[in-house]
Design a binder for these strands. Structure first.
Length: 377
DNA sequence: GCGTATGATTGAAT
DNA sequence: ATTCAATCATACGC
């Protein structure tokens, strides 16, 4: 074998020349590199059988013992790489590190996220693509990981065998083998980290592409839009639903409370910007509400019975003149005091659109009555 | 493909 | 915490 016992780490310089037979053996060891494999094997055997071999070997062991101890302490017990742990945690959280399961429950990552578009029942449909792609990533990750682990294992075995073979010719302590194995694992750990990094990146990109709610915007159902619009236009003087009202609207529209808040935020701005155009919509919805009220015949219909911070509050808001008749009916209905009789005229927030120009159809500016004036008239 | 509508997000103001 | 205003990204109708 071409691998040779390296000359032992230079021993303390002897004061006297080595005995002729020892130096002879060393000479032979040094010369072995130049020989062919067969020759080397023969020489190795001869050296092994040499009468001085055990003595020389024990000396080498002794020297090695002295010189290697200091080296051993250097790299012992590497702490587990924090970054590797973090990446591992993340892949675990994303469902990539989990063992592949068959069936629909296999990939569960993403199921716990908020429902984009407000259709809870569509969750599984919307995310099926994400799950399929995540499953692909997981398969690639696991197959690559397996390859790396196999390669690492093979290489470790090879090196261990090599060192064990060498240990017949030179002193190789178990600790030394252990260190070598550790070093190999360290190198493969770096590769594993790269694999984890690229997998994390892939998962992040997938999430952003397929799960980002902004990218999966869905229009609300007709019913949700109607419920929201009815409330908005029937509370035009103060379209700020209370928390309870938001919950009620969310329940009725099959959307979330935060979606209701978003919708009202958007709607107020939209209305301000586009007041003239939206007046028509206002007429439709206020008319509809009024009809509903008449049909039901109960004061405080399904929209107006929703609690509002300023239900019935006054405000100089331009109400559509064409809907006034209906509004009057509706307003009268909504002005019915609730059982507690406490929310009428409460906590008016002032004119929410005060700074905006009034449309042509608006009642005379400065009319502080708004709905109440209509009701009073 | 393009313009508009619409739901969500973000940062500042309150 | 809530609202406003600007902005983004997608849905939708033409």
């Amino acid at each position: 074998m071409a691998t040779l016992p390296r000359p032992a780490p230079s021993p303390p310089a002897p004061r006297r020349p080595l005995r002729p037979d020892t130096s002879d053996v060393l000479q032979q060891i040094m010369a072995i590199t130049d020989q062919s494999l067969d020759e080397a094997q023969a020489r190795k055997h001869a050296l092994n059988c040499h009468r001085m071999k055990p003595a020389l070997f024990s000396v080498l062991c002794e020297i090695k013992e002295k010189t290697v101890v200091s080296i051993c302490g250097i790299q012992d017990d590497d702490p587990p790489d924090a970054q590797l742990l973090r990446l591992g945690d993340m892949l675990l959280a994303e469902g990539v590190c989990r063992p592949e399961k068959t069936g629909r429950g296999g990939a569960v990552a993403g199921n716990g996220t908020a429902t984009p578009g407000g259709c809870p029942n569509d969750n599984s449909i919307e995310h099926s693509d994400y799950r399929a792609r995540l499953s692909q990533i997981r398969q690639i990750y696991h197959s690559e990981l397996e390859k790396y682990e196999q390669a690492c294992c093979e290489f470790t075995t090879h090196v261990t065998n090599l060192l064990q073979e060498q240990s017949k010719m030179r002193p190789v302590s178990p600790k030394e083998i252990e260190r070598m194995v550790g070093a190999i694992h360290g190198k493969f750990g770096a590769i594993q980290m790269q694999l984890k990094q690229s997998t994390c990146k892939a998962v992040m990109m997938l999430r952003s592409r397929l799960l980002d709610a902004r990218r999966k915007r869905q229009n609300f159902s007709k019913q949700a839009t109607e419920v929201l619009n009815e409330y908005f236009y029937s509370h035009l003087s103060n379209p700020y639903p209370s928390e309870e009202a938001k919950e009620e609207l969310a329940r009725k529209g099959g959307i979330t409370v935060s979606q209701v808040s978003n919708w009202f935020g958007n709607k107020r701005i939209q209305y301000k910007k586009n007041m003239g155009k939206l007046q028509e919509e206002a007429i439709i919805y206020t008319g509809k509400t009024a009809v509903d009220t008449n049909e039901v015949g109960v004061p405080g219909n399904h929209t107006s019975c929703l609690s509002t911070p300023s239900s019935g509050s006054s405000g100089p808001f331009p109400l559509p003149s064409a809907g006034d008749a209906f509004l009057t009916l509706r307003t009268l209905a909504s002005l019915q005091p609730p059982a507690g009789g406490c929310c009428l005229q409460s906590q008016a927030q002032g004119s929410w659109q005060g700074a905006t120009p009034l449309p042509a159809t608006a009642p005379p500016a400065g009319d502080p009555g708004g709905i109440n004036s209509n009701a009073a008239n």
